[in-house]
Structures are given as structure tokens and as C-alpha cells.
Amino acid sequence: MSVASVISVLDDDPYVRAALNNLLESRGYIVHTFASAEEFLRSTDSNDTSCVIADVQMPLTTGIDLLTQMRAQGSATPFIFITAFPDESVRARALKAGAICFLGKPFAAADLMQCLERALVAGDETIE
């Protein structure tokens, strides 16, 4: 039996966190939700995360800043970005920083699940 992947959802909107939590748990994932990058970094759950799904625009530390910080610390955790403002220059920055996907809100659940599958495969390849 395989162990369920742990997905960390970071979004300052509690409704987005709840919706993603419900979607991902219904697909068998273990989900941890956080209202900010700082809350995520303070959590011990950050070490066990198989993938981070983060809003781009959050107070204090943006999702892209978090990804950059984690990469600088040697973390290869896959990132998927979601945003209500899918600006092309921000998308380019996110992908250059190492994001697997960049989705504009609202997005289809199937699109997110496809991104998540790609992210988890990429994460497995990093571990090997």
C-alpha cells in the first residue's frame, strides 16, 4: 500500500483553502492548509510536503518569494501557483523560479489535478 502524498495549500483566502482542502482530500491526499508563507515555514509540516500549492499574491511573503527562498535552502519541493491575477510577466517569473504549473483563478479541478500529478512525478524523480 502506498502512502498518501502530503499537499500543502497556502492561500490567504479561507474559502480557497477550504475548497482546495475538500477537493484534494476527496482524491485521497493528506492536506495541510496555511494562511501565509510564514505560517507554512513555522510549521513542522513543511518538511513532509510532497507538493506546495500556493497563491502568488499573499501578504508579506509572496508565493514566488517563498519558492525562491526554499530553493536557496536546497528544497526541491514541487510548486504549483494559483492566482486571481494571471499576468504573463508573473507567470514567466514563477516558471523561471521553478514552478511546475501556473493556474489562473478560477481553474478547473481537472487542470489542478493534472498539474498535481506532474508535480508529484517531478518530486519523485528528484528523490531518486
Rank of each mutant, 00 (worst) to 15 (best):
R42F: 03
A97T: 06
G98A: 02
E128V: 03
D65N: 10
P78R: 03
T44R: 13
D55H: 03
P106W: 08
T49W: 08
C115P: 07
F107D: 03
A37K: 00
P78A: 04
S43E: 10
L95Y: 04
M58S: 01
A97G: 03
A119W: 01
A72T: 08
S43D: 10
R27G: 06
L66W: 01
L41Y: 04
I80N: 02
D111W: 03
A119R: 01
A4H: 01
C51A: 15
G98K: 10
C51V: 12
F34K: 02
T77C: 11
F40K: 07
F85T: 14
T62K: 03
K105L: 11
A109E: 12
A84G: 15
L60A: 12
E25T: 15
D11V: 08
A122Q: 11
E39D: 14
I53R: 07
F34I: 01
Q57D: 11
S36A: 13
Q73R: 14
A18V: 07
E88L: 12
T126L: 10
S26Q: 13
T77N: 01
A72C: 07
G28V: 05
D45R: 13
Q69M: 14
Q57E: 14
D124L: 06
M70G: 04
E39V: 05
Y15L: 15
S26M: 09
T61G: 02
A110I: 08
N47Q: 14
N22V: 09
L41N: 10
A72Y: 02
S89M: 00
S43V: 04
E38G: 02
A108N: 02
F40D: 04
R27A: 11
F34V: 05
Y29H: 06
D65F: 09
A94Y: 06
S89F: 09
P14I: 08
V3K: 06
Q69E: 15
I127V: 13
D13K: 07
E88C: 08
I7L: 09
L67K: 04
K105E: 11
F79P: 09
A76H: 12
F81Q: 05
S8N: 11
R42Q: 15
L60T: 12
G123C: 11
L95R: 13
Q69A: 15
S2A: 10
S46M: 09
F107T: 06
A109V: 03
T126D: 14
F40Y: 14
A108D: 02
D45E: 15
F40M: 03
E39L: 01
F34R: 01
N22D: 15
G74V: 07
G74C: 10
V121I: 13
L66P: 00
F107C: 01
L20G: 08
D48L: 13
I64H: 01
A4W: 02
V52P: 03
C101L: 06
D48K: 14
T62F: 00
T62E: 01
M58N: 00
E39K: 10
L116K: 00
S36V: 06
N21L: 11
M58E: 11
A4V: 02
D55K: 09
P86D: 12
S50C: 05
V52Y: 04
A72V: 00
A37G: 08
V90D: 02
L67S: 09
A119M: 02
P78W: 07
R93T: 10
F34G: 00
G98F: 04
C101W: 07
L60I: 12
S36L: 09
F85W: 13
A109K: 04
I7D: 04
E38H: 10
F34H: 06
S46A: 12
M58C: 10
R17P: 10
R91A: 14
R118K: 14
A99L: 07
A119E: 02
